[in-house]
């Protein structure tokens, strides 16, 4: 078998070399031109994902834990305990007596929790979910404020639904991301797998989503559904912060949540500026450095304050200003 593939490789290579040897100058130029076109078709982003996942696997087996993942583990642990507690809590409660469980993730932190029905939930910064115990009770109802990614355990007899102030998502078993921060005007649902029903607004507008679709609800426009690559909308749960032609205003808001800081845009010209990059488990300092390096933005960092009685005061602040001399091509 091995020999056969080797022979095939050899055959292909010989033909290829022969072709190269016979090329005249003009054919070489033309072939070079065609190669240049092929470059554009190479799947760079997929390959980048593969390379990082290989790096992750291979370095983990060598026990190289970064400070970052250690910190994350410490923060996730209490929440895990909370989830375990909620499961053990479930038994003694009788059908008439309801207990509400609430899990909140502060700014600057993301966490993963497991619900009593083994549904997995990733909660983004500044988000919270609330549900009643016993959780599985003819239906599975969750209240969400903020952003979360759900991998719902299939259970036909107990439909799963997520309520936000303005909308409701009903599913059986699926994976989806929902973003419903109260301070933002829209609610966004992105369906990765399965099927779901999205209801929103006063008029109870309703759409059914298929995988690969993204629905956005806005108060005055209603629900719009679009099919597009969805990877970037749910990448936050892998510690990735993705900007794709994102206006500076939104970049600032995402950084605020991600790092638990306050961002102040001191120059109105910044509002028009758009930014494209992906940060993966980067520190705030690294992110700011890269922003400065790649755009006419200057940032200054004001550390968080602590009050007299050792209570947290103001969060850390970052001021963004516009540097006119530093123009970008």
């Amino acid at each position: 078998m091995r020999e056969l593939t080797n022979r095939r490789t050899a055959e292909k290579l010989k033909q290829h070399i022969q072709k190269l040897e016979q090329f005249s100058d003009d054919q070489e130029i033309m072939e070079a031109y065609l190669s240049m076109q092929k470059i554009k078709e190479v799947g760079t982003e997929t390959a980048r994902g593969k390379v990082w996942s290989r790096i992750g696997r291979e370095s983990r087996s060598r026990q190289v834990y970064t400070w970052f993942s250690r910190a994350a583990a410490i923060l996730v642990f209490p929440l895990l305990l909370l989830a375990i507690w909620s499961i053990t809590r479930q038994k003694p409660v009788s059908g008439t007596e309801m207990v509400t469980q609430e899990i909140t993730v502060p700014m600057g932190i993301r966490s993963r929790i497991v619900l009593p029905d083994s549904t997995r939930v990733w909660l983004n910064s500044g988000s919270s979910i609330r549900y009643r115990l016993p959780f599985t009770n003819g239906s599975r109802e969750i209240n969400l404020s903020g952003e979360a990614y759900f991998e719902v355990t299939h259970d036909q007899s107990n439909p799963f639904s997520v309520h936000t102030g303005r909308s409701k998502v009903e599913v059986l078993g699926t994976s989806f991301n929902i973003k419903a921060y109260e301070e933002e005007p829209e609610v966004e649902v992105v369906l990765i797998e399965g099927k779901l029903r999205f209801k929103a607004g006063m008029k109870e507008e309703e759409v059914v989503l298929s995988p690969g679709e993204r629905a956005v609800f806005e108060k005055d426009k209603g629900i719009t559904v679009r099919r597009e690559p969805l990877e970037k909308y749910a990448a936050w749960r892998f510690g990735k912060l993705v900007f794709d032609e994102t206006p500076m205003k939104d970049v600032a808001r995402d950084l605020e949540r991600w790092f638990g800081i306050k961002v102040i845009l001191t120059d109105p010209r910044l509002n028009e500026y758009r930014f494209t990059t992906t940060f993966e488990n980067q520190s705030l300092q690294q992110v700011l450095e890269l922003l400065e390096l790649s755009s006419p933005i200057k940032s200054s960092y004001v550390p968080a304050t602590v009050n007299m009685d050792n209570q947290p005061g103001e969060p850390a602040k970052v001021h963004f200003s516009f540097e006119t001399q530093k123009m970008i091509r």
Partner: peptide, 27 residues
Amino acid sequence: GDRVAFDVAFRRYYPGLVIFASQFTAE
């Protein structure tokens, strides 16, 4: 150990390197 820098280099060089390498491997 800056991952963003690695990504920048990756995006800049990867596609070209692949086509370059395929001149040697024919695949």
